[in-house]
Design a protein around this nucleic acid. Sequence first.
DNA 1: TAGACGCGTTAACACCGTTTACTATGCAAG
DNA 2: CTTGCATAGTAAACGGTGTTAACGCGTCTA
Lengths: 235, 235
Amino acid sequence: MTTTSPTRRERLRTATVSEIKEGARRLLVSGGQQAVSLRAIARDMGMTAPAIYRYFPSLEALVKALADDLMDELAATVTAAGEAAGDDPTAQLGGMARAFRRWSIGHPVEFGLIFGTPNPALGDLSAECDPNDPGSRFGRPYLEAFLRLWERSPWPTPPRELMEARLGPYLEPLRQSQGDLPIEVAYTFLSGWSRLYGLVAMEVFNQLRWAVTEPEALFEVEMAMFLIQLGAAPD
Amino acid sequence: MTTTSPTRRERLRTATVSEIKEGARRLLVSGGQQAVSLRAIARDMGMTAPAIYRYFPSLEALVKALADDLMDELAATVTAAGEAAGDDPTAQLGGMARAFRRWSIGHPVEFGLIFGTPNPALGDLSAECDPNDPGSRFGRPYLEAFLRLWERSPWPTPPRELMEARLGPYLEPLRQSQGDLPIEVAYTFLSGWSRLYGLVAMEVFNQLRWAVTEPEALFEVEMAMFLIQLGAAPD
DNA sequence: TAGACGCGTTAACACCGTTTACTATGCAAG
DNA sequence: CTTGCATAGTAAACGGTGTTAACGCGTCTA
């Protein structure tokens, strides 16, 4: 009636959807993944639990939608940090890596939902080669920075023919996702991304406490070493 | 009556405890972490749920005990692989890393329970610097192999005084857990362990599917690169 | 103005962890 | 042998959960 597309009903509906997800996230943060219950969300909204089924077909679907939102939030944070880091691709990579760690340790439960133990239902979905896969959606900015850096000044890698032989055929999905990625870039991206993930996940999951008091120092050293290997100036 | 220590009652008790944990693991493997319920375990044993409270104070305690057992199983697997790899410390490291990956991808749900998103209750326990910490109990064999290799033939690292300055004070728990560990060994261990964890966790959690079809190839290349950096002969 | 549809309700079912009260059984001492 | 007690199990119940079914009301539309 008023304007073009968003009819009144639709506006109310999306608002309710947002409110549900906000409530879910609040419960997630305050009480962990197990505290997210339809009845609690509905209670906080002054509703009854079955009403939520008008908006989500199941609790699992709600959690999945929330995880998607969190993925977007993280991806936006990371790309913003990359853009704020200037023109040097190594500086961009460093900024994006730091942004990833900062968001993750600042939102440990959300991190666990996205990157931690997959639920059986959520795992089945990620079994397919979804182009909307969390890893893909989120790895793209890193991948682009690696590619820019490679075109500007390639870094030393294992010999190309050796990499082609040993893992060339197995990186096809990655290489084709970005239009014929050089194998050196694909390999270095995967190596760096797995190192970043490992370090951050261990810190968030409290797996370093027994060994390290300040994981940030370890993170900074590791990142510096990696960037130096990519040709960045030390320190 | 019969012998000395294990009276009949005690034997039955430990047997029941084992049966409960076996049932819990079966449910865990078949249905994920959420499928582990006291009532289901009791049902499978032909018992009623409250009986389990004679053996475990809560479901959480049961799951924690199960996780401890799994940790022991994994640690035993890894150390056995290290001992089966001969005398060369780099070969031992390679064997242990492969054993870690093999066990993890062969037991993904168990891996998730040990190394994945921590439960609030389990996370509080790992907040203390427990010497029985999973990471500690499990990282020790790796640490010892790194140490043997270092004493035999040190590998190139960042300059010692730089490492001492940047992360010397923060690695105290780790360095004192093994009697004045050289900082080069401590740093290389942490770097290698986080890389191993990152790669394996991403594979187990299906975070590489969008990019890689054969994670094992990537794993082998990464491991070879790391061991070469440690002075091992290439291939 | 009728009817369809969106959105919410209540009631109910089948689970779950946990507690309580109670009953047998095994064991050890008088 | 009997008495007594700790142990291991039971049934019943409380409050919580996801989910479904049946129903009522408001809004939009033909």
